[in-house]
Amino acid sequence: MTSGYAAGAPGLRRALEAFRDSPLTDAEQNRRSDHWLWLAGRNAVAILDDELLHTLATRNVQLAREAGALATLPAALSFLSITSVLMGELARAGELAAEATTITRATGGVQLRHAHLILGAWRGDHAGTTALDASTTRDVAYPDGGTEVVLAQYAMAVLHNGLGNYSAAREAAARTCESQELSLSSAGLPELVEACVRDGHPEQAAAALEELDSRARATGTPWARGLAARSRALTSTGSTAEDGYREAVDELTNSRMTAHLARTHLVYGEWLRREGRRQDARNQLRTAHDMLTDMGAEAFAARAGRELRATGEHPRSRTTQPTDALTAQELHIARLVATGATSREVGEQLFLSPRTIEAHLRNIFRKLGITSRRQLRELRFP
């Protein structure tokens, strides 16, 4: 904050690595970690380090579960949900967000909306995401410029980039990047570049790219380098653009951020089609469409589908799965039971009674057309 991102990033990384390497056997260390891991995880996003982010977000949930910390578990679950979205695991993200909501409702706490907002945005749910954004903006509990409101702006940037509403995406992303919290601006910068390029604001795109490039050089992670390369390609032409897209695909392939990898194939394919290279475009767009469809990022998948049809190829339809009929909470319970957990064990993890779990199981069996836990273990889960 005082000397600039490049000066602060190495020290921030050392701090996050210390959290990662802390032993889990020391009860006092566990207690301290539980109080600080939420901040450590957010700063892993600030330096765009996907490995640290995954480790810290997962550990935060693990420690909160082990301690039975109902006050902190919903926030930890929400953060892991957002992490899962970026990793392309949208079904898993929905289960975690639903669990956080259930626990908060049971304990009478304040509901955190940002996990549902970001999940809805990546899914392309315009009505649901817009309604959540509006309710967050109106809620006096969330001041303008606060984390919840800025996270809502990030969600709106993703939503509108997916839907192709680039003017609205640019406005939302610009507000996200104004945040002094580095995790929010780091997440918002690639959204701002894409929206500015598509909305015809090259100077604003160049400024955002310069900042993103600087952060990527300071951190050197595949996630950061991949996002910077993709953003550089979006602002470039000719061989420079192609080199950028290829670099972005290579870097993001080596990261956990599958959702951003899929979007990189999408914008690369869009560029190739506009260059008149239809066969090359098909390869990228087909990959993007398949990845985005499978993860449930429907608006981005629809974008890939439209581009693919423009090349003369009809995109494949998503294969309906039996588990599609389940709610996020039911899917979460089914997944746990399929691992062999008893109703009591599942109830203890989700802070529900065994009787409630059994009631959910009856609904799950009915929806799936099965009658036993053995059949549940044989199902394929998203």
Rank of each mutant, 00 (worst) to 15 (best):
T2M: 12
G8T: 03
R14A: 10
A15N: 11
L16Y: 02
E17D: 06
F19P: 04
F19Y: 14
D21F: 11
L24H: 07
T25C: 06
E28G: 10
Q29R: 13
R32Y: 13
S33L: 14
W36S: 12
W38L: 11
L39Y: 15
A44D: 00
L48D: 12
D49I: 08
H54A: 15
A57N: 13
E66I: 09
L70R: 15
L73C: 10
S78W: 08
I82D: 08
S84I: 06
V85N: 02
G88F: 08
E89V: 01
L90Y: 04
L90V: 10
A97K: 14
I103R: 14
R105S: 13
T107D: 14
V110W: 05
A115V: 11
G120Y: 12
A121F: 13
G124Q: 09
H126R: 14
A127C: 05
T129L: 05
T130S: 13
A131F: 07
A134E: 15
T137I: 08
D139L: 05
V150D: 13
V150N: 07
Q153E: 15
Q153S: 14
A157E: 08
H160L: 06
G162E: 04
L163A: 09
G164V: 06
Y166C: 13
S167N: 15
E171L: 14
C177S: 11
L184R: 11
S185D: 11
E194N: 09
V197Q: 01
P202N: 06
A205S: 04
A207N: 06
E211W: 03
S214P: 13
R217K: 09
R217M: 10
T219C: 03
L227S: 09
A228Y: 00
R232Q: 15
G244T: 03
G244C: 02
G244Y: 01
Y245E: 09
V249E: 11
D250Q: 08
T253M: 02
N254V: 02
R256C: 10
A281Q: 13
H289D: 00
M291C: 09
L292C: 05
M295G: 04
A301G: 12
R303D: 00
A304N: 08
R309C: 03
H314I: 09
P315C: 00
R316M: 12
T320K: 00
T320F: 00
P322N: 01
T323Y: 04
D324Y: 04
T327Y: 01
E330F: 07
R335S: 00
R335Y: 00
V337P: 05
G347C: 02
E348D: 11
Q349Y: 01
P354V: 06
T356H: 06
T356E: 14
T356P: 03
R366P: 00
T371L: 04
